[in-house]
Amino acid sequence: MSDKPVTFTIDGVEITAKAGQTILQAADDAGIYIPRLCYHPSLPPGGHCRLCTVKINGRPASSCTFPADEGLVVENDTEELNDHRRRIVEMLFVEGNHYCPTCEHSGNCELQAMAYRLGLLAPTLPYFRCERELDASHKDVYVDRDRCILCGRCARASREVDHKVVFGFEGRGVHKRISVDAPHNLGETNLAAADKAAEVCPTGCIMLKRKGFAIPVGQRKYDHEPIGSEIERSRSAK
């Protein structure tokens, strides 16, 4: 990671990164949106979703982990990469069990919003249809693993921000799941409703109880504007 500002290009646009920034952070500051799901600005990067993969000097790498460096040539908004990103979002839709019409988070969901942004009309890859555990044992928070995309934000938030380690992973490959730091369920953990870990889920997997459907259709976060618009607006304002 560079200890001084560096200049590089994304899709031909020259941008300057502050010392220590990743490509994604520098792009955000410059008003260039690189699609992402597992990344969260207040957490260390996870490298799980791979949506933020860009080509750096011709080679694919995740921009959320890759340090900005002088003279890098980065490709981001290309048909090839957006095709791959759309397919990854599609994979997530058929891996979990996502029933948007009944989900409290619909309209505010980053997975759904990413599908809209990338123009995914219908997933046509084969569905996995695996049973996934629902945990409603906690008085204020529930975990609906049907909606989990294994982005690990909850685990990182719990560790890095809440200093608690309430969430982790278990299993490998397609059997990987979010796991809680208790013998049986979330109700036995010290998770609090105000914890960062209960707030950062991009989908409707980790949700506060008694808060669902609060925002009417038409006023939800992604009803009118694609995800990433707030970042892109900062560029057009410049």
Partner: peptide, 19 residues
């Protein structure tokens, strides 16, 4: 044309698919 969530994904009725 598949019209609507159920035709496109199975939709709400498909909630039974994991049982």
């Amino acid at each position: 044309i598949a019209l609507g969530a159920c035709a496109v994904t199975g939709g709400v009725p498909s909630i039974r698919n994991t049982v």
